[in-house]
């Protein structure tokens, strides 16, 4: 971290296409803000779950925030995002409005999927957010297809595709990487390796536990990055995105990370020790980054108070919006099975 601007210097307009992060104080505080925003939002969701405001599955991103926040900084508005069922963080970091996300968690018609998707299926056309896919590995072909469209239409956009290490055991992982590399498609594959496919540890499921090595066998550049270090993720993502925009074909980032909480809301976590969880918490992405910022004199107490207050206000507004939202009338249930007369997109 050499090119850190001195505190108080004005934050320049940030270009997502820049090959390296511009580590101004404003930029760093924004990274902290985004990670905390996801953490606090999900803390609130867990609480709302216990009040039965949110039902179904709820997969928290707790511990993995640096991956989505870091990678998203390398994306331009015209780029597309394909995510997993653990995608609250991706949606928020991409800019999907928090009230629409919260309303979707409530199952309200004001939700970003009109109450039909829930936690696992957040969608937003305005931000080119193609979901929330709850079939492990199910999003990889979609990402490659979106990238093929970009390429054939001569659009400079890329597709960021997030998935867990569990997906690397699925056929779609291998089929999609092969095709993306073969056709030089503009896809940024981001593997969030949190070491457990639900409750099965990597060592029980993979003959080759280094996912980036698997990816590299498809003749594409694959790197492994510390997924608990938001700046490292951003730097890797910018580097990869620059190559992709240059027409070099897909890139692959394996971000080593960890999920602090249960797989979903019902999970006795028999598959791992408390000590292991605690050791990872100690190097948690927010804790570590915040400590570093404080020790570097870049984060002042009033900064943190300001960030926390802004997040709290945003979450309050999102909850208020969701509470005030309406239920989709049952008479509307059969809408959107087929398009309604409108011309295709």
């Amino acid at each position: 971290m050499t090119d850190i601007a001195p505190p108080g210097s004005p934050a320049p307009a940030e270009d997502p296409r820049a090959p390296r992060p511009h580590l101004s104080r404003g930029h760093l505080l924004e990274l902290l803000h985004q990670m905390l925003r996801i953490r606090r939002f999900e803390d609130r969701c867990a609480e709302l779950y216990s009040y039965e405001k949110i039902r179904g599955f709820l997969h928290l991103y707790d511990g993995e925030e640096a991956v989505a926040v870091g990678a998203m900084r390398a994306l331009a508005p015209e780029d597309a995002v394909v995510a997993t069922y653990r995608e609250h963080g991706h949606a928020l970091a991409r800019g999907v409005p928090m009230p629409a996300v919260m309303a979707e968690m409530y199952g309200k018609r004001e939700g970003c999927s009109r109450g039909r998707g829930g936690s696992m299926h957040l969608f937003d056309r305005a931000h080119r957010f193609y979901g929330g896919n709850a079939i492990v590995g199910g999003g990889l072909p979609l990402a490659a297809g979106l990238a093929l469209a970009h390429k054939m239409r001569g659009e400079p956009a890329l597709v960021a595709c997030f998935f867990g290490e569990g997906a690397s055991a699925e056929g779609t992982f291998h089929e999609s990487l092969n095709l993306a590399a073969l056709w030089k498609l503009p896809v940024l594959f981001v593997c969030e390796n949190n070491r457990y496919a639900m409750g099965t540890a990597l060592r029980y499921e993979e003959s080759e536990p280094q996912i980036a090595r698997k990816a590299a066998s498809y003749n594409l550049t694959a790197v492994t990055v510390d997924g608990m270090d938001v700046v490292a993720v951003e730097a890797a993502a910018r580097d990869a995105a620059t190559a992709i925009r240059h027409g070099d074909g897909p890139r692959f980032i394996e971000a080593e990370t960890y999920r602090f909480r249960a797989h979903s809301m019902f999970d006795a976590q028999l598959y791992r020790d408390k000590e292991e969880v605690e050791s990872w918490r100690a190097k948690g992405p927010i804790r570590r980054f915040r400590t570093w910022l404080e020790e570097s004199g870049l984060l002042h107490p009033q900064d943190l108070a300001g960030i926390e207050a802004a997040i709290e206000a945003e979450i309050e507004e999102a909850v208020r919006f969701a509470e005030a939202g309406g239920w989709e009338p049952v008479g509307e249930l059969e809408r959107f099975v087929y398009s309604e007369g409108a011309a295709a997109s």
């Binding site: 939700g111 970003c112 009109r114 998707g117 969608f123 979901g131 929330g132 959107f336 099975v337």
Partner: peptide, 9 residues
């Protein structure tokens, strides 16, 4: 289409 509340056909 349905899962996205009509957003993506």
């Amino acid at each position: 289409l349905h899962m996205s509340g009509g957003a993506f056909n």
